[in-house]
Each structure stands twice: as structure tokens, then as C-alpha cells.
Design a protein around this nucleic acid. Structure first.
Lengths: 287, 287
DNA sequence: ACGATCAAAGAAAATAATTTGCACGAAGGC
DNA sequence: GCCTTCGTGCAAATTATTTTCTTTGATCGT
């Protein structure tokens, strides 16, 4: 499916020569994608047949198939290695932001934990009440977004970005409910406290956060999101885009799970909007 | 730079045979990217040399160069033509959402109106007060996100998703201020009303919305966002991701414009967070 | 209307790239 | 220590691609 993923897997089993080829792919990808098999072989100090065999090993039909696969994946996947943007021109800034966002999506996709997602979906879809917690701009957006998405499917949900409220809500929750908490850093101490309280009360909790973090440790189910961040403080957060995509995935799966209910509720909301001719109605639904 | 952009430009000047080749690229791109020159020529009912000439015309060195370029761009750009996702399996749903989001970013990037962005940035950076308006879940998120981003640079900004408040705020605004309104559909009547009022009061307005829409028409500056939407009502909104990226672009450019001020304010905010050891502090800043 | 001129496109030949088959040598197991 | 297996390169065979040359058909001026 994806060359670099395969390369990762096979890495250990590669021979010396094959490793030299792999190094070129990783280090001078631009060259690799444009080179002929002979040029590539020359640079790696191996014979062309070795390159062919290498391609086969990675699951490609032929060398040219390999190049196409490579070009495909890498347009997205390799840009991370590039340094900071060239200038402050509109075009460059835009390119940088867009590319990083696409990359974040790419990395998210590659690192998704399907089992965790399925567990989380199961819990959410069957909960009597859903509490969505998150603070600090980014995560509070995620929390309210969760509410925004889930209520449409006829689920009972509330969001809070207020630490004190979160604690009180956690105290009020029951084992048939679920707490979903988002923390980009995984170090939101207040959220950990709420999760710990929930655990004592046997209320299941779902964390959307970095793995190996305090928040992750405190949760029943962790859906991990592990992405590198850029270091330009003015330049934000391709991570946020990844979180939104993850939310979309979760919400879509939940929707499928509760479908009959969802269809009815959506119809009712739509009815409501059309009746009132709200300007943004199409978006609210087409969302 | 980008094969499909070039194809667009050259379109008119292509001969019959070359047009047949172009059609195959557009319609059966999967085939085109995997085929040899002979297969492609066969399918287009032309001779291999014609294909070579076609590639050259599009600015490529050779046929294989062409295939690489094609694979590169198209991994992102062409998936729109594909029908709905295959199943409701976690993996397929995830793939669909991620791909659509990446596509939205790709399309956004291609359609960005640099001039409009620069005008908007200029207005925002020099405004005495910024009012960010948006309603209905998606756009209200954009509005609060604008606030979340801009206050960090030491700008005076408030956000509202409340129609009545928006009208009142518009009435209170001055010509040295600016109103920024987001509407995914471009048909938010209340926002149009606020913009119209602002125009009477000579308060400049910036719309983030579809071009050729009522909201766009009512605004002083329109930063257009024109993207196709999927039609699965459970499946949301790669558009939102595009809006967020656009916001990032605007905010980053504004930040550069007001940099000295921004650095000071950011330092102060960070100080504040570190002092209070808020869990998510890194994110708030790394944002 | 006729011929000159030119662009477009294909056929065949030339070239280049890629793959296959085979043989050799080194590493590791018996 | 021998045999097996794997990795590798060489050379030949195959295949793909490009170049060159030629034909076709259209356009334009006389």
C-alpha cells in the first residue's frame, strides 16, 4: 500500500546492498524519484538487477511501478524533512502551512490505532451521556466540536472547557456514561484529575492525546495522536487539523453505529433549519 | 510545476490526438499512471511518439518524467473523482476522510487569492479593533478561532456567533475597525445584514466565504473559499479543514506584520502560563 | 481550383532501459 | 569441513522509449 511503511517493516531484513538503496531513497529522495534504474544502481554501488529485486521485495511489480508508488507517497510524506519556509511572502507561507497540514494528516493516517478507535466508538455510541472535555483554545475547540458533531446523531452530549465544571461533571457522571478528554500535550493536570475521579467512580474515559503521557495513563481508552510540531511559534498547528480529522473519523463511525436514530434526528434538525431559513443551513447539514 | 495546472493552460491548444490522451489522464488516471507508453498510446488510439510529444508539450523531459510528475500531483488532486468510500470499516472510513481533507487543502492552495489575502492581512494588522463573526457550528468555530489566534499577537479582537450581538457590534464599530465574517455557504442572511450596516457606517468588512455569494457581495474584501462538498450527510467537511488552514495563513501573515508587538505579548502569555503551570501550556504556545 | 507549405501523426529503426537466467562466492547450518 | 542458501553481478534477452523519416491532410495564396 505505502512504500515507506513497507520499507519500515522490511528494514531489518534487508541486506547490505539493499540498505544502501534504502538510504538513498530516504536521503536523496528527489534524486531517486527521477533517476533511472541504472543511475540509482550506480549511486548505490549495486547492479541494476539488485534494484529490481529490491523493488519486488517492497511489493512492487517492477521498477517503474516502484517509482510511481514512490512519487505518490512521497509527495506528502517527505516534506517534513524540509527546513522552515523560505520567506514571508504570502505564497511561501501558504505553501508551508498547507504542506504541513497535509503531512499531519498523512502521519495521522499512518499512525491511527484502529483497535482503540473501535473501542472508543463502541463506548460513545452506547453511552447514556457523553461529556466532552478540553481546555486552552485548541482542545476546547475539539471538545465543542465533539458536541457539535454528536448531538446531531441524537446522542446526549455536553462539552466543557472549564476545569471546575469538568470536575463537577465527572463527579456527577455514571458508569453508563463516558468522558472524552482532549489534550494536545497530554499534560493537562486538571484533565488528569477529572479522569482519575472518573476512574474511582467507574466512569469510562476516552483520551485523545499523546501516548505515554499523564492524560493517556489516566484514561480507560486512549486514542493516541503522536505528531511532531513545528517550532515556529507564529506558525500553528497542523496538529489541530489532525485532531479534527480524527474527530471526523470517530464521529462518522459513531454515526454508522447509531444510524436509525441519527437519520431521524438529522431530518428533524434540517426541517428546523429550512423552516427558519437560516443562512448557513446547507453547511450545518452538509457538514 | 504542476501537471494538471499546465494541462489546464494548454487545453485549448491541444490537437485531437493529444486531447484523447488528456481525456484518459482525467478520466482513468489510475490506468494512466500505471500504464506503459505503449498501453497508454493504445488506449488513446495514437502512436507512442504522439504520447512522447504530448509529455514534452506539458513541460516534461520524457515519458517517465511525466509519469512521476503525474503520480506526484495526482495522489492528492484527483481523488475527488472517486465515488464514495468502499465500506464502513474503520480503515476505509479513515482513508476516505483523510484523503478528502488532503484534497480540500490541495484545492484551497490552488485557488488561493493572494491579492485578497494580502489586502485582508493589511486591514487586520492595522485595525483598532477586530470583530470576528460566524454562526452555526462551523463558522462559529472559525470566528472563535480567529479570536484565539489574533489576541496572542496583542491585537484587540472579539468573536461572536450571536446574530443580535453581531448587529449591535457592527453598529458600534468605527471605520478604523474591521469586521471579519465567515460563512461556509455564503448565504447567511444575518451576516449580510451586519455587513450592510457596516458598509453604511464605513466600517471595512472581510468575508471568508464562497465567491459569488450574497455574503461575498456585501463585503469590502472577500477571501474566497470555493470547494466542492461531499454528499454523505454523515461525512463532514473537509471544508472546515481548508478554512482552518486559511485562518492559519491569515494569522501567520498578520503575525509577521505586527511582529514586535506579537513577540512581547506572546512572551507575556507564556510567562503567565508557566507561572501557573497549566497543563496544556506548550500547546497554547506551540499552537 | 491548384499547388506550396506546414503541422500532425504514424512506421520503422535506433537506442536505451529493464528484466531474466545463470554462475559465482560468502555466510551459516549440519 | 561440506552442503545449502542467499545475495550478488554479468551478460543476454526482452521490453520500452525515443528518434528519424515519411505520409497525410489541412490551410492559404495565387
Amino acid at each position: 500500500m505505502d512504500i515507506f511503511a513497507t520499507l519500515q517493516e522490511e528494514k531489518g531484513r534487508l541486506s547490505q546492498s539493499e540498505n544502501r538503496i534504502a538510504d538513498i531513497l530516504l536521503n536523496d529522495f528527489e534524486f531517486a524519484v527521477n533517476a533511472s534504474i541504472i543511475e540509482l544502481a550506480g549511486k548505490a554501488d549495486v547492479s541494476p538487477p539488485t534494484v529490481t529485486r529490491f523493488c519486488r521485495r517492497l511489493g512492487c511489480e517492477s521498477f517503474s511501478d516502484f517509482k510511481v508508488q514512490l512519487a505518490r507517497t512521497a509527495y506528502i510524506g517527505m516534506r517534513y524533512l524540509k527546513p522552515e519556509p523560505k520567506s514571508r511572502e504570502t505564497g511561501d507561507v501558504a505553501q508551508d502551512i498547507i504542506t504541513k497540514a497535509q503531512n499531519a494528516l498523512f502521519l495521522l493516517h499512518r499512525s491511527l490505532d484502529h483497535a482503540a478507535i473501535e473501542q472508543a466508538v463502541e463506548r460513545i455510541a452506547s453511552a447514556d451521556m457523553i461529556y466532552a472535555f478540553g481546555s486552552g483554545g485548541n482542545s476546547s475547540m475539539i471538545a465543542s466540536e465533539l458536541q457539535n458533531r454528536l448531538f446531531r446523531y441524537g446522542l446526549r452530549v455536553t462539552a466543557s472547557s472549564d476545569h471546575s465544571m469538568q470536575l463537577m461533571m465527572a463527579a456527577a457522571a455514571r458508569p453508563s456514561d463516558v468522558l472524552i478528554g482532549s489534550s494536545f500535550s497530554g499534560r493537562n493536570a486538571e484533565l488528569v484529575r477529572a479522569f482519575t475521579l472518573a476512574r474511582e467512580l467507574k466512569v469510562p474515559t476516552i483520551a485523545l492525546t499523546q501516548s505515554n503521557s499523564p492524560v493517556a495513563a489516566a484514561a480507560t481508552i486512549t486514542v493516541p495522536v503522536d505528531l511532531p510540531e513545528g517550532n515556529n511559534i507564529y506558525r500553528p498547528t497542523s496538529t489541530r487539523v489532525a485532531y479534527l480529522a480524527l474527530l471526523d473519523i470517530l464521529a462518522s463511525l459513531v454515526a454508522y453505529r447509531v444510524q436509525p436514530q441519527a437519520t431521524v434526528t438529522l431530518r428533524r434538525i434540517k426541517q428546523q433549519l429550512v423552516t427558519h431559513r437560516d443562512g448557513d443551513d446547507r453547511q450545518l447539514m452538509g457538514d
